[in-house]
């Protein structure tokens, strides 16, 4: 029988905390940047000029149809060869994660906007509102209601996906786990704790998503 010994982790709690901090930092910054990217692409694809849609679609599909790990490695090791500029690991991670999140958010935005009945645009026009105002006042609030559950789910995925940055030696939660394991020879305890920390952060988020989804039914 394996004898668990969590006390061996004693000296390393600080590192775990640090790793969690980096994980949360990457999640928050890349979710925010991803939302901006997604909103811009989503609006451009629904309301922008028609010629703009295919290239944006291509961009989205490239990020959705290749593994994030491959994207990270490509951005860190391959892109510098192409453009001749070295990129720090943290910058490569930030850019990749933001674009990756952005391409998923873009589809969520587009889906939400298109889910709003065409009659809503017409009703806005019929009282003399301009397109931009109809979008902001009438369509977007309804689209956001539709989007919130998918948005939360995608954000949960994003937090989990940040664990891939450990591959290029960015010191997130998982990376610290590797470091601690190398020093303590206690992989079972270390990775169990790491998994628990992810769970403790993410589980409440899924509860929030469920609550929001239920509440959304209220005015419909």
């Amino acid at each position: 029988m394996y004898v668990w010994d969590f006390s061996a982790l004693g000296p390393y709690w600080g590192l775990i905390g640090q790793g969690l901090g980096i994980t949360v930092l990457y999640t928050v910054t890349t979710v925010v940047a991803g939302l901006v990217v997604g909103l811009v692409i989503g609006i451009a694809r629904t309301a922008g000029p028609r010629w703009l849609s295919p290239p944006l679609r291509a961009f989205i599909e490239i990020f959705r149809c290749t593994p994030l790990l491959v994207q990270l490695v490509w951005m860190y090791y391959a892109l510098p060869v192409l453009i001749g500029v070295d990129m720090s690991a943290s910058m490569a991670c930030f850019i990749t994660l933001s674009l990756y999140a952005g391409s998923f958010y873009a589809e969520i935005f587009r889906g939400g906007i298109e889910a709003v009945d065409r009659g809503q645009w017409e009703a806005g026009r019929a009282i003399g509102m301009r397109q931009g105002r109809i979008f902001r006042r009438i369509v977007l609030p309804q689209a956001i209601q539709v989007m919130i559950p998918s948005f939360i789910n995608q954000t949960i995925l994003q937090l989990k996906n940040t664990s891939l940055v450990s591959v290029v030696a960015v010191g997130d939660l998982l990376y610290q786990g590797t470091v601690i394991t190398a020093a303590s020879y206690r992989p079972l305890e270390v990775y169990t704790v790491i998994a628990l920390v992810y769970f403790v952060v993410l589980f409440p988020l899924t509860l929030v998503a469920d609550r929001v989804e239920q509440k959304m039914g209220a005015h419909r």
Binding site: D117, G119, A123, R125, G128, R130, Q142
Partner: peptide
């Protein structure tokens, strides 16, 4: 364009078969 159409629609109101009220 949109800017030219909006003033017309202020003065010509319309009611639709399916109401199209703003649900929010």
């Amino acid at each position: 364009n949109d800017a030219a159409l909006a003033p017309l629609r202020r003065d010509v109101g319309m009611v639709f078969q399916h109401f199209n009220l703003f649900p929010h």
